[in-house]
Design a protein around this nucleic acid. Structure first.
Lengths: 123, 123
DNA sequence: AATATAGTTGAACAATAATTCAACTGTCCA
DNA sequence: TGGACAGTTGAATTATTGTTCAACTATATT
């Protein structure tokens, strides 16, 4: 069985509790789902992105505004905004040469509030 | 003012909407809090850690069990478990030379369920 | 038309984080 | 006591990710 051989290649120990491992294995969701979950958390794991999202919770802002607020280059902010936009967390509208960014929906607020509770419990 | 000079050093543009920036600036939490938030999300942004935590939601497991389940070396799993333990997400107990890991509390379940909703909405 | 500004982009670079590797501790068992 | 095994650790390596830099587009202003 191919899978079993792969395991022997990479895992350097024996199964101690085979029933437990098999039960858990059958209960685990697909890898894809777990990777999607990690990717979702990945969006919020960088403090620059957290700051940008937090700022946009307060007001619609253009790239320059965000750059000044966070004391970063436009380029750096723009790169992060692209990531957030491709994840559908923010949207934008263009007025002349100014691009205004805002939150796409209330998802971010929900998630941040949840996280805030968790963080504050530590203190 | 020192801060202002720093800004000029790093930010490559003018403030377009000064009132907006200043309002948002006064509404922003301390940097420390925002960094803590990012660090919290960082715990869940790696698929290996997500898989370990998900497995531990299902059953208490020793390091070997987890290694076999995820097809990884004990060393690699051990390193990740250390991160999760120092964040108080998992706890362990030692029986002879076997170390059993389990979730420290129901925090992980709460957070994962929340994330699952978000991820599943995309489809 | 020429210039300045807002923003974007891709490649290079720097920083961070995960995995591997080898050596180690501690416990079990013969 | 000596070997085998579970697990840990720190350093080296590799992979990933964020920032910088330079060139670019597009719009506005003179």
């Amino acid at each position: 069985m191919e899978l079993y051989n792969d395991e022997l290649d990479r895992c350097d120990c024996n199964t101690i509790h085979e029933e437990v491992v098999e039960k858990v294995r059958s209960d685990m969701p697909d890898d894809d789902l777990l990777i999607d979950m990690a990717d979702t958390f990945k969006l919020f794991c960088d403090s620059t992105r957290v700051k940008i999202l937090y700022a946009l919770m307060k007001a619609e802002m253009c790239v320059c505004d965000i750059s000044v607020l966070l004391n970063m280059t436009k380029s750096s902010v723009s790169h992060q905004l692209r990531i957030l936009k491709s994840a559908n967390l923010v949207k934008n509208r263009k007025v002349g040469r100014v691009v205004y960014y805002s939150l796409a929906d209330e998802h971010v607020s929900t998630i941040f509030n949840q996280c805030m509770i968790h963080v504050e419990e530590k203190y």
